[in-house]
Amino acid sequence: MKPVRFQLDQSVELLTAHSGLALIGLLLSHTQIAKRLIRYSLPGVLQPGVTHPDVLYAYLGLLCQGKSDFDQIEPFRQDRFFAKSLGIKHVPSSPTLRQRLDLAAASSYDWQNILLEESADLLRALEVPLTPVHATGPEGKALSWLPLDLDVSPFDNSRT
């Protein structure tokens, strides 16, 4: 195998610790999530200033960094890389994020179904090999689990 070579240059650009979000944005662009959510209406949100896909993608961006608190979106509202990497036009405020996700969770056909369907479609389209882990449950019942772990760090640390 040919060794990976890197070129290090000094830059005047602002560096970001969440560069792996560009990979998440690329994966999201290969789904129909945005198209499906745009057609989706929530009670009380007829013409949102921040679209449903922007809300969902912003929260996914937080989750991919291990952040789950709505208030943790605030520093990213002025972060151009965060928005551009995820394809977000308007990063929502923490109240908008919380209120919209609460409404989506309370609706009859929540966004979770869209996410689950699109995730399965993406894995299928990319022909990702899935290998189950087998275990024995209560009363000796055979169980199969399918672990899925994604790492958004685009670094080769194999020799560190």
Rank of each mutant, 00 (worst) to 15 (best):
K2D: 13
K2R: 13
P3K: 06
V4I: 10
V4K: 08
R5T: 07
L8Q: 03
Q10V: 13
L15D: 08
T16A: 11
S19C: 10
G20V: 05
L21N: 08
G25P: 07
L27I: 06
H30I: 05
T31V: 03
Q32D: 14
Q32E: 14
I33P: 02
A34Q: 04
L37R: 01
L37C: 04
I38K: 09
I38N: 11
Y40H: 12
S41P: 00
P43V: 13
P43G: 02
Q47A: 13
G49F: 10
G49R: 15
T51P: 03
P53E: 03
V55C: 03
L56F: 09
Y57K: 08
A58L: 00
A58D: 00
A58C: 03
L63Y: 14
C64N: 07
G66S: 04
F70E: 05
D71K: 10
D71G: 09
I73H: 00
I73S: 01
I73K: 01
R77Y: 01
R77T: 05
R80W: 14
F81P: 02
F81S: 06
S85W: 03
S85Q: 04
I88V: 03
H90Y: 11
V91K: 00
P92M: 09
S93V: 02
R98P: 03
R98T: 05
R100Y: 08
D102L: 14
L103Y: 03
L103S: 07
A104E: 05
A105D: 08
S107G: 02
S108D: 14
S108W: 07
L115M: 06
E117V: 12
E118D: 00
E118M: 00
E118S: 04
A120I: 06
D121G: 06
D121V: 10
L123P: 01
L123I: 11
L123C: 06
R124K: 12
A125Y: 05
A125I: 02
L126A: 12
L126E: 12
V128K: 04
V128S: 04
P129S: 07
L130D: 07
L130R: 11
T131G: 07
P132K: 06
A135Q: 12
T136R: 09
P138R: 14
E139D: 12
A142G: 06
P147F: 06
L148R: 05
L150D: 13
L150K: 09
D151Q: 11
F155H: 12
D156P: 09
S158A: 07
S158W: 09
R159D: 14
